[in-house]
Write a protein that binds this DNA or RNA. Structure first.
Lengths: 245, 245
DNA sequence: CGTCGTATTGAATGGGTTCAAGTAGCGTGG
DNA sequence: CCACGCTACTTGAACCCATTCAATACGACG
């Protein structure tokens, strides 16, 4: 189905969190052609080796990027929440080198590459904002590398929870150190290079230490300071604008 | 010291390997102001938390990006060779979230952010090429995440050697499966999340299997196919243009 | 020719995996 | 309304890849 103007509001809000938009820029963003689709949980959106002609914008739900290895192993590279453009990179890299899938049921908007490219050329400020977004993406990859390479399982998971909370808070989907966490322990393991068994043991440990409460999909960070300390979490790498609450 | 026109030739060559340049674009790149500096091995170029006003272009030598953790641990994110812009991201992320240092003695050119930004606005094609470069950067991070998270030490090192060889070959610094490898076993360990002791054992193993020869700084890949297989190496993620030999 | 960084080798230890089994929660349909 | 079946979660025990600690060899360079 085709998008009405208000469908791209999450994108406008996202861009405004990166740069201040002029009236023309805002209108240009909102008037981009977009197709909205609803997907169930655990569906591929774009696959490894595809050559997509659209960018995907998450309107609601969670998505993740991943790659399958031999022997059924899977590495998750990132989780994405409403307002994110999880395959923005496909704008300038023709062939996908990984897959993008839904985690929960999602409402997604698809914007033609052509429109995005015209936008970035006509409004260099918007181009810079989008470029910046992909650079923060890369910064998060680097931080994950540190976790996977150099931290204990406990530290990795603690760090992950801190990061997820701040990302959700930044788009108004979390507050008071509470948020929804619609991913399984297998997902966490696949993201952090751990077995689901060990993820479970660490979560048990965190609970028994009173750091978190996790029942179903409800995550409560009971001791933010201690969790940050355990994960050596410093949010500088997220490059969040100061004052965004 | 100030740069003469020919100093930026490596950048032109790099950009031409990404996109085809018009005469005007080529001239615009070559006429950017640049300061050339010589640095010894193991010197920081830009540090974590700095707010640089220039981009660094590697003219000769190797550099690496890294971050220090507590307890003296270090994670290396990437190695960079002539033609690379290792801190291009600082163009749109004001604060450094990691450091950049020389590995060997280097000849480096520093280009003001201001000039780079003007270039990308005046020539959107060049802007896209540079953006693309940072996207490939991110793709390499993702591939390293897979290695660190999901591969054995043997596979990780094999993959790393394959990647390094192709990167060097792409800029004419390697051929016939031979290249210079001016990094220590500690560096390899810091990049792949391994101890130097274990790196050494794996290298011994690789030699005894006849996969590589490594004497001093001279790496010879004796069995390219087998090394690729061991590292599950598929160069798609490097997004090299076909036909760039 | 000594010295410092790098490489090499051995032995003990440990964090995390793997295999295996059992439990809890939840949507579906009889 | 409860049985069923699926998925996610939980727990135990054995194993292993890689780390750590420690000692030794090499090799470039002043």
């Amino acid at each position: 189905m085709s998008a009405s103007g208000s469908d791209l509001t999450p994108l406008v809000r996202k861009l405004e969190s990166i740069a201040s938009l002029s009236v023309e820029e805002r209108q240009a963003v909102e008037s981009m052609p977009a197709t909205v689709r609803l997907l169930d949980a655990r569906q591929d959106i774009v696959r490894d080796k595809d050559q997509p002609a659209h960018c995907c914008l998450v309107l609601s739900g969670w998505t993740c990027r991943y790659k399958l290895l031999n022997q059924g192993k899977r590495q998750i590279f990132s989780f994405h929440v409403p307002g994110d453009l999880p395959d923005l990179q496909s704008l300038h890299l023709r062939v996908m080198d990984h897959s993008l899938a839904t985690v929960t049921a999602c409402r997604l908007a698809f914007i033609p590459h052509e429109s995005m490219r015209e936008l970035t050329i006509q409004f260099p400020g918007l181009g810079a904002a989008l470029w910046r977004d992909t650079l923060v993406d890369a910064a998060i990859f680097r931080e994950w590398m540190i976790g996977i390479g150099r931290k204990t399982a406990f530290g990795r998971i603690a760090h992950q929870f801190c990061e997820m909370y701040l990302k959700l808070e930044a788009v108004g989907l979390a507050a008071a150190h509470r948020c929804e966490l619609p991913i399984t322990q297998v997902d966490i393991g696949d993201a952090l290079g751990l077995s689901n068994v060990h993820v479970n043991r660490v979560l048990m440990d965190m609970r028994s230490q009173g750091l978190i409460t996790l029942r179903g999909r409800a995550l409560v960070i009971e001791d933010w300071r201690a969790l940050c300390a355990a994960g050596e979490f410093d949010p500088a790498y997220l490059h969040l604008e100061p004052g965004a609450s």
